[in-house]
């Protein structure tokens, strides 16, 4: 049985008559990166807020390292690092003073050496003694990441952590997350940037209108969506007849054909076209991207 660091069970949130979250279930595992996806208003940020007790649940449970947050919120928070939306700081203080504030309030308190190491890790050493009000969005985001990992949390909950990061920052962030995952930290990343999630996540939870429409591995999601066979021939009319004869669904644009694949039909198609004397110009299997799979799930294709 796989270890579970965070278990979210039937998590619900209702505000007035509006059901914001409906019985959300998922789990996080040590060393795994979980991508939390969903369109605007799907409930991603609400889920993270509920997981750290910033807002009250209407139902369900959240356990962190075996501790139910209803009874042991402060104990659970000692193991969680988080970014929620845009990280906010005391602008009139330096980046370092902000981290000191966070370090003092952690349990156990964080040493000066650890602060320095984390500042170096997020490449903010040159600016750390400047007041935060002079920081760019990307620098604030780096400081937010530093603050989230400062107390060596076992669980990281990051809401849009790549907002405002430049390409180098984006790359550094991915490397850092992979390092932390290798150290058995459980990481949840909510993001709109699907390509980043695709590069990072082992597991996925997709929310739509407050409901989980997919929870599982990224590979399983991509596998369950149909890949496509891309075909171009020198005789489109004859090709269409052959494909119909093979009882395959396809879409055609001039000499370009797209055929959804549940199994590998390439040998069968190649043979049939060859038997019909049709010349093949292109034959390629197109894998489903996370974006395609995501759009199919949330119905925005």
């Amino acid at each position: 049985m796989k270890a579970v660091s965070v278990q979210v069970t039937d998590l619900s949130k209702r505000i007035g008559r509006k059901q914001i979250l409906k019985q959300v279930n998922f789990k996080m595992q040590p060393g795994h990166i979980l991508g939390l996806l969903g369109p605007n208003g799907a409930g991603k940020t609400t889920t993270i807020r509920l997981m750290v007790g910033l807002i009250a649940k209407s139902g369900g449970t959240v356990t962190v390292l075996g501790q139910n947050i209803d009874q042991h919120l402060t104990e659970a928070l000692a193991h969680i690092g988080t970014i929620i939306e845009t990280p906010q700081f005391y602008d009139y203080m330096t980046g370092y003073q902000n981290l000191q504030q966070y370090a003092r309030a952690s349990r156990p308190p964080v040493s000066k050496e650890r602060i320095d190491a984390v500042v170096a890790k997020v490449k903010l050493t040159a600016a750390i003694q400047r007041k935060v009000k002079t920081y760019s969005l990307g620098m604030r985001q780096r400081l937010g990441i530093a603050q989230a990992i400062l107390a060596r949390p076992a669980v990281l909950l990051l809401d849009e952590p790549m907002n405002g990061l430049d390409p180098a920052g984006d790359h550094d962030f991915r490397v850092l997350m992979q390092e932390l995952a290798a150290q058995q930290v459980s990481i949840l990343i909510s993001s709109h940037i699907l390509s980043d999630i695709e590069k990072l996540a082992d597991d996925l939870v997709v929310l739509k209108q407050g409901e989980v429409v997919y929870a599982g591995t990224l590979a399983a999601l991509q596998a369950r969506q149909n890949a496509k066979l891309i075909l171009e021939t020198d005789n489109p009319a004859q090709t269409a007849l052959v494909l119909r004869h093979l009882q395959l669904d396809f879409t055609q644009t001039k000499q370009h054909f797209e055929i959804p694949m549940t199994t590998d039909i390439r040998p069968e198609v190649t043979k049939a076209l060859g038997d019909a004397g049709i010349g093949l110009l292109t034959l390629a299997k197109q894998e489903v991207s996370l974006e395609d799979a995501y759009l199919q799930l949330v119905g925005e294709a």
């Binding site: 910033l54 929620i84 952690s106 603050q147």
Partner: peptide, 14 residues
């Protein structure tokens, strides 16, 4: 006003 209330409340203190 600053949004730092979240910064405070995600630490292990009630």
């Amino acid at each position: 006003d600053r949004g730092t209330i979240r910064f405070l409340l995600v630490r292990p203190h009630g």
